[in-house]
Amino acid sequence: MTTPDAAEEEHQARFDATIARDQRVEPRDWMPEAYRRTLVRQIAQHAHSEIIGMQPEGAWITRAPSLRRKAILFAKVQDEAGHGLYLYSAAETLGADRADLTARLIEGRQKYSSIFNYPTVTFADVGVIGWFVDGAAICNQVPLCRSSYGPYARAMVRICKEESFHQRQGYELLLTMMRGTDAQRAMVQDAVDRWWWPSLMMFGPPDSDSPNSAASMAWKIKRHSNDELRRRFVDMTVPQAEKLGVTLPDPELRWNEESGRYDFGTPDWSELQRVIKGDGPCNAERMARRREAHAEGAWVREAATAHAAKQARRRARRAEAPEGAGV
C-alpha cells in the first residue's frame, strides 16, 4: 500500500470521480468527513421535519368533518411518520444513531422545517398544507431523488411518490370546499392568506444568504438553489390558485412576459429568522409534544427491551440444556 496521505488522496480522487460521473455514493464508500456531516445534518433535519410535521395536521384527524376525509388525513399523517422513518434509516447508514438524533431534536440542537411552527386554525388548513406545503416539499424533494448519496436518493423516491398523493388530497379538499358554502370559501381564502408566505420561506433563505448551499450543490447533495426552487414553486402554484378561485396575498405577483415566469414579492426574512430561532407561534408547543411523547414512551421501550433480553436468556438456557441439544 501507499502512504496514508497518498491513500487519502486516492480516496478523494475516486470520490470526486464518482460525483463527477453522477454516480451514487454508497454507505461504506470512503467519503470526506464534511460530506458525511452535511448529509447527516440535512437528512436528520428532514426526518425531524416529517415527524414534527405530523402535529399540525394530526390535530385535525379526530375532527375531520367526513369519514372519507378522516381516513385520508389519518393515512397521510401516518405516511409522514413513515417518511421520517425512511429518512432516519438513511441517516443511520452514515453511522448516525436514531436515539442520538432524537435527542438532538428534543434538546433543540437540530432544527426542523420552520413551516411546522405555524398553527392549523381551521380544517381548510389541512387542504392548504397539502397544496402548498406538500407542493413545496415536492419541489424541494424531487431533485433529491438524484442526490449523490444512494440511501438518501432512494428514500426520496419513495417519499416523493407518497407526497404526490398528499398534495392531490389537499388540492381536492380545497376544490370541494370552494364549491361549498360561502363560509367554506372564506375559510379557504383565509388559510391561503396565512400559509402563502411561510410556504415560500420553506425553501430557505435567499441564495445570497445561504452559507451551506454551495458545498451541497458541489457535492450534488442538493441540485438547485433555494431561489430557483422557490421560483419553480410560484410558477407551479399560481395557475392552480387561479383554477381554484383564490387570491394569493402578494400585490407584486404578476406574469413577466419577458422571462416567461412570475415575478413575486420578497418574503419577510426577519420572520423566518425569528421562527428558526425558536420564536414562531408554535415552536414551544411542537417541541413539548415531541418531548412528552418520547418521555412517556420510555417505560414502554424499556419494557420491550427487557422482555427481548429475557427471551434471549431463555433461548440460551434452552440451547445449553441437554434436551435442547438436538434442536
Binding site: H11, R14, R28, D29, W30, M31, L94, G95
Partner: peptide, 8 residues
C-alpha cells in the same frame, strides 16, 4: 479498520 467508511 474503519468499516463504515472503508474504501471500495
Amino acid at each position: 479498520k474503519d468499516p463504515f467508511f472503508a474504501p471500495s
